[in-house]
Amino acid sequence: MHPASTISSSSSTDTETPAVKPAKPWLAFIFGAVFTGWGLLYAGRPRAAISLVAGLWACLLIGGRVGIFGSLKGLSIIFGLVVFAKCISSISGALLARRRVWRPTLRNHLFYLAGMGCTLWLLLHAAAWPYLLGFTATRITGNGMAPTLMEDDTVSCIARSQYDPGDVVAYEQLAGDYVKRVAARGGDTVELVSGNLRLNDHNLGLFYASTQAQPYSQTFERTSLGADQLFMLGDNRDNSRDSRFDGPVMADRIKCKVTEIFYSRHQNRIGMRVD
């Protein structure tokens, strides 16, 4: 036996990289189903896990900017994207589990779960929806817009750069948020004559009015709007606090346009477009 050969063989053995213990496929599948990408992290593929989550959020953000999520169909698209990402996470994590080349530590898992918890909070927090998903949900209080919108209806609301007569919008007032219909905008003249809306001397008829028995629903003196003002009317004209009482609304007070009924106590109204 040659001593040099023995030493060389021993040194080669000492410098070999320790084998990584394979992960359990069933556990990787469960992890991936609970949080998107967690199964891939457990399987030793952190870059794939982060890429999957980043891809999901890119789809949500792009969809929000394009404006495809402000409806029940849009909500189903969001749900489908999340489920699809979870399926990829679970199945690919399970398939790669036994070929794990890197084993995440407990700290790695905790950091990942903390990050996923923050992203999940953003996705579920309604105040973040306008910035992330391009829409928000608004609950209707009162019946000033009946029968178009009823009390306790929950509607989708999408921000626009411009609002036109006939649009139903949510806006801020000192007393709170209101949902009414735009009757006129900057530069227009508006008045009510015998219950009919006259916009720039054109008779638009009842203009969505459902009831108008009260004197204040029949007549409103001719008013000219400033460049940054809008005139609001409720469809339930007799029971609506709108611009007839509070005056025109400044354009920067408008929050969004109401587009669809997400939820209503009357099942046949769910999914109705608001026009």
Rank of each mutant, 00 (worst) to 15 (best):
T119D: 09
G37C: 05
E260G: 14
V258I: 03
R103P: 12
M145T: 00
P147W: 00
K257N: 12
S5W: 06
L27V: 13
L206W: 11
E172V: 12
H2K: 09
V179T: 06
Y216Q: 15
I77T: 10
P165S: 05
L174R: 12
G205N: 11
R244E: 00
P25S: 14
L81R: 00
G63M: 05
G74M: 14
H2N: 08
V101C: 02
V66H: 00
W129D: 04
A33G: 11
T223F: 07
L120P: 01
G195L: 02
A170P: 13
V20M: 02
P18T: 15
Y112F: 07
L60T: 11
S8V: 06
S90I: 03
D152Q: 08
M232K: 01
H202I: 15
M250C: 07
A227Q: 11
L72G: 11
T141F: 00
M1N: 06
M145R: 00
Y208H: 03
V83Q: 01
S89T: 13
S161K: 06
R139P: 04
E191K: 03
A146Y: 06
D164M: 13
D188T: 14
Y216G: 13
G142L: 00
C256E: 09
K86R: 13
D177T: 11
E191N: 01
T13E: 14
A85S: 14
G117S: 12
S156F: 01
L96G: 15
A48K: 15
A127K: 09
I158C: 05
G271I: 07
A43C: 08
Y171D: 06
Y163P: 04
L133W: 03
H202C: 13
V101F: 01
G166D: 02
V34T: 03
G234E: 04
R222V: 02
S76E: 13
R222N: 05
L122M: 04
S243D: 00
M145L: 01
G117I: 10
V190N: 04
L95M: 09
L40N: 07
V155M: 14
Q229K: 00
